[in-house]
């Protein structure tokens, strides 16, 4: 019994210590963000690897999610003779939920894992320590541009995902299933508001951008500098980011759409 209690205490302490390390780490990285303006090229390179290289999976998933939404939505709505509302259904589900959340999940798998592995490997091969030896702060040189790039890229990716989803649902709905094209857009425009739906979707994806990039860079930075440690950290990134995104999504939705 005592043993069990001791184990629980140790586990809790380890968690809390890790959370504290992560917060201090985030503060140090945030302090390094202003310096990024002077070295803009670093940010551009990270935007390339985090944003541009994620485009393929975002574009393809956006198109297919939209097409499936169009088909399933139409199947349900047609029973009520309300298939003209397909545009509203698709646009609201994409702008409010699916756009930010699915983008964040894909981002964790595509870009977050790569960030963790990259930084973890830098640590394992002692590149980070050698930077410190040369009086280069790896928080500023390595982590800050990656975090900033993730935060910038996420809303853009989410917007692209959402738009492609709406367009592909439009194609499926009007070309395949015979929904009136004008009704698709006019119902959508009448029921989607910029501030309530699109802006809150953007806020969500910004929050997810911060969380996903933070977890990814911290897992990499905090990993055991062995090949096993790096692989475990990469797995942790994907799992933790997915859980954090889904949990936060509930909280944000409850706050925004009460």
């Amino acid at each position: 019994m005592i043993r069990w209690l001791q184990g629980l205490g140790a586990w809790t302490l380890a968690r809390m210590a890790r959370l504290g390390r992560a917060s201090l780490f985030l503060l140090r990285v945030l302090a390094g963000l202003p310096g990024l303006l002077a070295r803009f090229r670093l940010l551009v390179h990270q935007l390339y690897s985090v944003g541009v290289l994620s485009l393929v999976i975002i574009v393809v998933s956006g198109i297919f999610v939209g097409m499936v939404l169009g088909l399933q939505g139409h199947n349900t709505l047609v029973d009520f003779g309300a298939e003209d509302s397909l545009g509203t259904l698709v646009a609201l589900s994409l702008t409010r939920e699916l756009g930010p959340v699915v983008t964040a999940l894909l981002f964790a798998g595509r870009a977050g894992s790569a960030l963790t592995a990259e930084i973890g490997l830098m640590k394992a091969t002692e590149q980070l320590s050698s930077m410190e030896m040369m009086a280069v702060d790896p928080h500023r040189r390595v982590v800050a541009p990656r975090l900033a790039a993730g935060v910038i890229a996420m809303p853009l990716l989410s917007a692209i995902f959402t738009l492609l989803g709406i367009l592909s649902a439009y194609v499926v709905g009007t070309e395949l299933l015979g929904v009136d094209a004008g009704a698709y857009w006019s119902q959508m425009q009448a029921n989607v508001s910029f501030y309530d739906d699109i802006a809150s979707g953007i806020i969500k994806s910004l929050v997810f951008g911060v969380v996903a990039s933070w977890i990814a860079v911290f897992e990499g930075f905090d990993c055991m500098p062995t090949s096993e440690g790096v692989s475990r950290a990469t797995t942790h990134t994907v799992v933790n980011t997915s859980l954090a995104v889904l949990g936060l999504d509930f909280i944000l939705t409850a706050l925004m759409f009460d």
Binding site: L47, G51, L156, T162, Q189, A190, S193
Partner: peptide, 18 residues
């Protein structure tokens, strides 16, 4: 990439929420 993302946002604002 940035232009595409911003364009998507603009279209969402203009075309979807009108």
């Amino acid at each position: 990439f940035v232009v595409a993302g911003l364009a998507a946002l603009t279209v969402l604002a203009m075309r979807v929420s009108n």
